[in-house]
């Protein structure tokens, strides 16, 4: 049984040329997202990474129709939902769910965890009260929360526990597309692994299209099929997870990878330190948005803006001199040593 209609390129959820702006103090425009296209196929995981403040959450929230885009279209399940009103969105909501970045403000502090997780179930007439209660208990157990959690208030939980409440709620209706904004950043790595495995099993079973935002590149590499790298509101690099992490082409991606700390003392020896001020989305640099901080920028980069071009099928980079940055220090080196030493 397949009750979804992906678009011609196979995407279940897609943004085409999405543009989102906010009003900054002083009446100027803040360009949070400037023409990005991103799509997720059923059963696929797309990882969205990039600078803090580069527009990742804005992309996610706009896909959910929580922000109005200034331009572009949003397509879900073959329908253009860009201008759907709340009434027309309602039947879509159960199939399109999101875990918000901030588990503190996204949970109503006056509601018990049971009510929070049951809310979507009630709104979409999941079943009888008994069935709903049973479903809530199952969900809480799946995300590793204690049985008495249901009767408590959000404030009575640790950061990571709240994040799991939000995950349980997003899974309640078994969505077809799930957007998760930093879903596991507040969790210890063991519970993180448990939650990721849970999401993967669910994805396999329900063929979920999964868009995940995270700063942990090792984790993103582990779970994503494709990765999109954002910088100042735009996509600068895109490709399979192995390609983006193993053969990064954009200098920003290289810097991002090189700055990833590894849990080994002295493991950060070859970090590439970005100099220059981080860019402002209110007053963006001309030419390539990354040029003021780019170690390999030339004159051309200061005046011309490199387009995002497809260098191989499914592999895109926005850089005139892509691939010129030396690859980051061998991120896999310490693990090779490790497995060599534990191998005997």
């Amino acid at each position: 049984m397949n009750d979804t209609t992906p678009s011609s390129n196979g995407y279940l959820l897609e943004a085409v040329d999405l543009k989102v702006t906010f009003r900054a103090p002083g009446g100027r425009k803040l360009h949070a997202v400037d023409t990005i296209s991103i799509g997720v196929r059923p059963g696929e995981t797309v990882g969205l990474v990039g600078e803090s403040g580069s527009g990742k959450s804005t992309v996610a929230l706009t896909l959910m129709r929580a922000h109005e885009p200034e331009g572009g279209t949003i397509v879900f399940d073959g329908q253009d939902i860009t201008h759907f009103n709340e009434r027309r969105l309602k039947p879509i909501r159960p199939r399109l769910q999101m875990v918000f970045q901030d588990p503190y403000s996204s949970l109503d502090p006056r509601m018990t965890v049971r009510r929070i997780v049951a809310e979507p179930l009630k709104a979409h007439r999941f079943g009888t009260r008994v069935q709903i209660n049973k479903r809530v208990d199952d969900l809480l157990e799946q995300v590793g929360l204690p049985p008495d959690a249901a009767e408590r208030l959000p404030a009575q939980f640790s950061g990571g526990q709240r994040q799991r409440i939000a995950i349980a709620r997003s899974l309640a209706l078994e969505p077809k597309a799930l957007i998760a904004d930093e879903p596991v950043s507040a969790l210890d790595v063991s519970i993180q692994a448990q939650i990721i495995n849970l999401l993967r099993n669910l994805q396999d079973r329900l063929n979920i299209a999964f868009l995940v935002i995270a700063h942990d590149l090792a984790l993103i590499h582990q779970i994503s099929d494709r990765i999109v790298v954002m910088y100042l509101g735009e996509a600068v690099e895109e490709g399979t997870a192995d390609d983006v992490v193993g053969r990064p082409q954009h200098p920003y991606t290289v810097a991002l990878l090189s700055a990833t700390p590894v849990p080994v003392v002295g493991g950060d020896a070859e970090r590439i330190v970005l100099t220059g001020d981080p860019p402002s989305p209110i007053n963006r640099p001309n030419g390539c948005r990354f040029h003021p901080r780019c170690p390999v920028a030339r004159d051309r980069c200061r005046t011309d803006k490199p387009p995002l071009v497809e260098i191989e099928p499914g592999r895109k980079v926005a850089c005139f001199y892509s691939g010129e940055m030396p690859p980051p220090r061998d991120l896999w080196a310490h693990e090779k040593e490790e497995s060599a030493s534990t191998g005997d």
Binding site: R200, L219, W332, E335
Partner: peptide
């Protein structure tokens, strides 16, 4: 420590 995600081959499951 064993559950830390690593930059090696992608695995079907992580180890909690």
């Amino acid at each position: 420590l064993a559950a830390v995600p690593k930059f090696d081959v992608r695995r079907p499951t992580l180890v909690p």
